[in-house]
């Protein structure tokens, strides 16, 4: 679905990506991991078109990205921290994004009911609690049934009930054949959701492997321990 070839990006002093090759496939949840400053955000932002890479090729569904913005119709993005116009209500913000996307016919409002957001619909965005902002952001990411989902720390700030509902939703969408890209600091969550782990280190691709083989190879009981033993000796 998405392939990245020899992606390089340099910021003033920092070489954020030093030639990364990676691909994201439909029907899979891929976790992008790595220590702070490893280039995770730069990689994701390059695919989303927020960061302009210095060199390298990104293809989306076979087509190379060249500054055209229409491919984003097929992407749902849930940021770590969402901020929308403060004085608009939840309803108005949903309306705004629908309008910007030209009111697609197929819309998935399941998360609105799952999260009981109906009662929040007429509240201005600035009065929402952190958890409700996060829920709204999840609703918007899934609303247009996108082929590709980027979820950046999706469960951070959610209560356990909402968090497990969101995880169920992620698994359902994966089974529908969606390409899902996930970042998280919670290893148990990644073990539960992800099929594949892409590990970045200092701007390079350190390894790509499936969660299952990572557990088998290291013989550790969980992903956190498995990663720790795999990375032993590497300054993390």
């Amino acid at each position: 679905m998405i392939t990245v070839k020899q992606l390089k990006k340099r910021f003033a002093k920092l070489e954020a990506l030093k030639g990364v090759d990676v691909s994201f496939e439909p029907g899979e949840v891929t976790a992008v991991l790595g220590p702070n400053g490893a280039g995770k955000t730069t990689l994701i932002k390059s695919i989303l078109g927020l960061v302009r890479p210095d060199s390298g090729i990104i293809t989306f569904d076979g087509k190379e990205l060249n500054g055209d913005y229409t491919y984003r119709e097929r992407i749902g993005y849930m940021p770590q921290q969402a901020r929308y116009p403060e004085n608009l209500t939840v309803k108005e913000i949903l309306e705004m994004i629908r309008d910007l996307r030209n009111y697609p016919e197929v819309q998935d409002e399941e998360l609105i009911t799952m999260f009981n957001l109906q009662s929040e619909m007429n509240k201005p965005f600035k009065t929402l609690s952190g958890g409700n902002k996060q829920k709204m952001s999840a609703v918007l990411a899934f609303l247009f049934c996108p082929d590709v989902l980027f979820l950046d720390e999706p469960t951070a700030g959610l209560d356990p009930i909402a968090s497990s509902k969101l995880k169920d939703k992620i698994i359902t969408e994966k089974k529908k054949g969606k390409t899902i890209i996930l970042t998280s600091h919670i290893m148990s969550e990644i073990q539960e959701l992800a099929d594949k782990v892409v590990y970045l280190l200092e701007g390079n691709l350190h390894f790509v492997t499936t969660v299952d083989s990572l557990l088998d190879d290291t013989g550790q009981p969980n992903l956190e321990r498995a990663l720790a033993s795999k990375l032993e000796g590497v300054a993390a």
Partner: peptide, 16 residues
């Protein structure tokens, strides 16, 4: 103050 909002809108099919 609009930085996060700009990021969000740029992930929608919107021209810069």
């Amino acid at each position: 103050n609009s930085r996060e909002y700009i990021e969000l809108l740029l992930c929608q099919p919107v021209k810069r």
